[in-house]
Structures are given as structure tokens and as C-alpha cells.
């Protein structure tokens, strides 16, 4: 069992928790993920590590309440325990040799992007961060990004805070101005990452994207998390849990990933409604 050390609501649907898991805390690097189960018979869900404190043995996770399991997780409080917590899984974000980087985060993806920005900042890279949210209510981690960035651009889709529009607009302006990055790291919804790649393509800037497919074991056993890369005209199957979660954005077949991500939509909607009803009745 793994103790919840702290819990904080970052906005009405996004929750941050610190979990006591010393072995994971000792090893986890930005870009890696963990898998947890809330209770016995629970679903295994992958969540990217949002930070670690090796001294206290705590691992920070940030999640959006979207389905049955995240609903149940959000109802747990500090001092309570999670059934299972395993990691760190996946390959850390590649950072070596990158002097100037642009981090593009969308929505709750910013929770994953933030430790990546901090790592680049710690390594002395020049960090530009562009973070976008649907509206002001959903904004998270603005101060943390400001502290880790040489330049920060905040966007909201509805214009309720900061600049109006989506993250690709300032990215395009910066690239059009002639400024270049060694790497753009895009972390957020698949559609956002797809358009970041399309925006960067004419300028020839490398883009790393962080994939978040349906996953079960997370250790390279089930193959459910497979993605297709198109490399030199050939289609190559890769497994997000052991080969990723970071991939070359130019190689990912985003349309296929979008389709596969919707496999259990009906089932999940039903399960979430049931979880909500259970909690309402409790």
C-alpha cells in the first residue's frame, strides 16, 4: 500500500497528489510515468510523474478527473492509501546537447511538461514555454512555468485569461521571426501535438511528442499501447511503455493514435457515470 502524503486541487477538475513511494522517487526522471491502482480490483492507469522528492521518498502526480478511476482517485485524501504504485516506467525525456528548447503544454499535459521544463532550466538551457488551456478556470502551474522559463506565453482558447487562441499561434510567430530551437517538446492532447508538428514542419525544427495511449501492464507485455511510426516510408510498430512515451513527432501516425484512443469511449462514459452514481449514493 502506498500512502497519499498530500493532496491539492489545482483547479476544479485537476488534482495534485504526493505519494510515498521511495523506490520510484529515487529513480524517476522527467518524462517517465508510473502505473497505479486505487483499490483491489481497480483498473491500472498510467500517469506521468510530475516531480519527485528523493529525500522524502514522495512522487508527485497530477491528474484530470475524466473517468471512473480518476474520479475514485480524486475522492481519496491525504493519509489514505493507494493499492498499487509502480515505476518509473518508460524512457526519460532526451535532454543532452539541447541548448535552446521550446516547451508546448496543453491542458493537463502541462503537468507533464512542467518537470521537463524544470529539467532543461536546471541544465542551463534557454527555455521558452507556451502553455494553453480551454479557459481561465482550467489554468494550472503558471508560476512554476514562469520560474522555469526564460520566456512564458500563456494562451486560453476562449480568451478568458492572458492571450486568446491556441498554442500554435505564438509558436508560429516565433518561428516566423527567424528564431530557432534545438528541440520543441509538445505535451498535451493528440490534436494539439499533431498541429504543433504541422506548425514546426516548414521550419525544420525537431519535435518530440509525449504519447498517452490506452495501456494495461506498462511493462512491455500486452502490446495495447502500440503506436505506428512512419520511418523512411515504412510503418513501424513501437510500444509506448518501453520505447516511449516520447517519440519523434514527425514519425507518429496521429490519426491512427486518435482513432485507437477512442476504442472504449462508450464503455468509459458508462463506467464514469456509474462511479459518479456510486459516490453520489454513498
Amino acid at each position: 500500500m502506498y500512502k497519499i502524503v498530500s493532496k491539492k486541487e489545482l483547479n476544479p477538475t485537476v488534482v495534485q497528489m504526493e505519494i510515498e513511494a521511495p523506490l520510484v522517487a529515487a529513480k524517476a526522471k522527467p518524462g517517465q510515468f508510473i502505473i497505479l491502482r486505487v483499490d483491489a480490483d481497480g483498473e491500472r492507469i498510467p500517469l506521468t510523474v510530475a516531480g519527485v522528492n528523493p529525500a522524502s521518498g514522495a512522487v508527485k502526480i497530477i491528474f484530470q478527473v475524466v473517468g471512473a478511476t480518476t474520479t475514485l482517485l480524486s475522492r481519496k485524501n491525504a493519509g489514505e492509501y493507494l493499492q498499487d504504485f509502480v515505476g518509473p516506467l518508460g524512457v526519460p525525456t532526451h535532454t543532452s546537447g539541447i541548448k535552446k528548447v521550446c516547451i508546448v503544454g496543453g491542458g493537463v499535459g502541462c503537468a507533464i511538461a512542467m518537470p521537463v521544463a524544470e529539467e532543461f532550466h536546471r541544465l542551463g538551457a534557454d527555455v521558452t514555454s507556451i502553455i494553453g488551456f480551454r479557459s481561465k478556470d482550467l489554468l494550472i502551474l503558471e508560476e512554476e512555468f514562469r520560474a522555469a522559463s526564460n520566456r512564458l506565453v500563456v494562451m486560453t482558447d476562449d480568451g478568458s485569461y492572458a492571450r486568446h487562441g491556441n498554442v500554435t499561434a505564438p509558436l508560429k510567430e516565433i518561428l516566423e521571426s527567424g528564431e530557432r530551437f534545438d528541440m520543441i517538446v509538445a505535451i498535451g492532447p493528440l490534436v494539439m501535438m499533431k498541429y504543433v508538428v504541422l506548425t514546426a514542419k516548414p521550419f525544420g525544427v525537431p519535435v518530440t511528442v509525449s504519447m498517452n495511449p490506452i495501456m494495461i501492464d506498462g511493462t512491455g507485455m500486452c502490446g495495447g499501447c502500440r503506436v505506428t511510426l512512419v520511418r523512411d516510408g515504412r510503418r513501424v510498430t513501437k510500444f509506448t511503455c518501453v520505447d516511449g512515451p516520447d517519440f519523434n513527432g514527425y514519425e507518429i501516425d496521429f490519426d491512427e493514435a486518435l482513432s485507437r484512443g477512442r476504442m472504449y469511449c462508450d464503455f468509459e462514459r458508462h463506467a464514469r457515470d456509474e462511479a459518479c452514481n456510486l459516490l453520489r449514493n454513498a
Binding site: L23, V86, P88
Partner: peptide, 8 residues
């Protein structure tokens, strides 16, 4: 349980 040798 929950220890991946090669990772954890």
C-alpha cells in the same frame, strides 16, 4: 509486488 527489475 510492483517492482520492475530493470526500472525500479
Amino acid at each position: 509486488l510492483n517492482v520492475v527489475i530493470g526500472k525500479t
